[in-house]
Design a protein around this nucleic acid. Structure first.
Lengths: 237, 237
DNA sequence: CGAAACCTTGACAATGTTCAATCACTGTGG
DNA sequence: CCACAGTGATTGAACATTGTCAAGGTTTCG
């Protein structure tokens, strides 16, 4: 664990804060590095920190009583977590693991909480971000309850593509491994794999390791977006 | 549409506000009644109001391009909606329909927004509630992606029961109709119906219209809660 | 009463999971 | 350098779950 200098000002959540707030935040927060694979938060631990991801990937997960993993979220640059404890009991609800080398800012919850109570802008920033997260969660619920596994995979690829410029064909990369992605999309790895091979056979999508060649975006759009309430390009994550 | 007197003070979201804020809220908000079946919000309308449900039931829903309904949420007493527009584009994302006679408070978004910027307590109340809603949404995602249809039905019944005192057997009621509930749980009405009949045959659950007799809660708990990260009684909605 | 909406059931098709086998890729230690 | 173990990915076959379609029963409400 190494501490490094960093710039809170460039983080949207902390934009437009009073000078004092920055000073106070800078004083109490620290940037740390975790190696790939390291689990740095465990369920039922006392919740002490808010986390902002600078670089790398984090997996948030729980376990069922039978020991199966439940993926809560997978986060990267500019994402944050640990905020629900601002107003709740002080136990962690999930485990957090670095799935790629991780660069992350930790802010003590007590400090953040008192700062939110003092600085109106910070409270409003948090409210805005939380509302945006809520919107994302609702879209995810919508997809899980109305699309089948194949459509969810195609939809995920389209959303990866939607951040790019508008083209007929694009090259993309899966951001993390397929087993995790399958779980995130609510299906077994085998089902995910079969969805990809169906996309290859019928829809001009070629996947080699983590690289995806989409040769005909329109074909995918016709396939998926027709049964959705959103319109391509969907910009949520 | 009839306007009626009402008490904002008793609403958790508006607790601990400054006197001025109350006065301002009371002046701009109004309580209205809608008859069962009435659709009072439509997608793409200009979003003008925040809604707080006093009594009755509301269904929030979208439509796919093919015309199928997607249920966003079903709300009743003390629930609210319309808050995401505090910080977003000003179009409604969904339709709202009274599915039971409805008594609801409407607050102009512009007023609410300026009040939130002024009154710190209001902003904090909103942040707290939004974080709680987010937690609920995450649990819903967890259930949709890790439980099968039968488990989701059993889990729903257990959560209905969890608000009651701890007993071996309880009598419950479905809060709204089964077709809607099925859709809310991400399955077809036929699948829902079959889940109920399986619960009857093997787990001592008797359903007659909207009345549910659960004769052996422990059997259900063993069936469902083992594969979940939560511990009965789960208190979320 | 009669129409409409809701609910249930059966037969069948489509979709998804499980389990086992195999392959590819990676990193380790001899 | 190679052998080997470990992880992740893919595939097939059997099975379980869920959706679809059609028919018929029930409830509600004008």
């Amino acid at each position: 664990m190494t501490v490094m200098p960093f710039h809170l000002q460039s983080i949207a959540l902390f934009s437009k804060l009073a000078e004092e707030s920055f000073a106070s935040l800078l004083q109490c927060s620290k940037k740390v590095f975790y190696k790939k694979g390291h689990i740095f938060l465990k369920t039922h631990d006392i919740a002490q920190f808010f986390f902002y991801v600078c670089e790398g990937w984090v997996k948030l997960f729980k376990e069922t009583k039978e020991g199966d993993e439940i993926i809560i979220d997978v986060l990267t640059n500019t994402h944050y977590f640990g905020e629900s404890f601002l107003f709740e009991e002080n136990k962690e609800h999930y485990n957090a693991q670095a799935i790629e080398d991780l660069e992350i800012i930790m802010i003590p919850l007590a400090s953040l909480k008192s700062l939110i109570a003092k600085d109106r802008s910070l409270a409003l920033n948090f409210l805005q971000s939380t509302l945006a997260k809520q919107q994302t969660a609702h879209l995810e619920i919508e997809r899980l309850s109305s699309q089948n596994a194949f459509q969810r995979v195609a939809c995920f690829i389209l959303r990866l593509a939607a951040t790019n410029q508008e083209k007929k064909a694009v090259v993309l990369r899966f951001p993390y491994d397929k087993t995790l992605l399958a779980s995130r999309l609510g299906m077994r790895p085998e089902t995910f794999s079969r969805a990809l091979s169906k996309l290859h056979q019928h829809y001009g999508v070629e996947v080699k390791n983590d690289v995806i060649h989409v040769n005909n975006i329109d074909a995918l759009i016709r396939l998926v977006c027709q049964q959705c309430s959103q319109t391509y390009p969907c910009k949520d994550k």
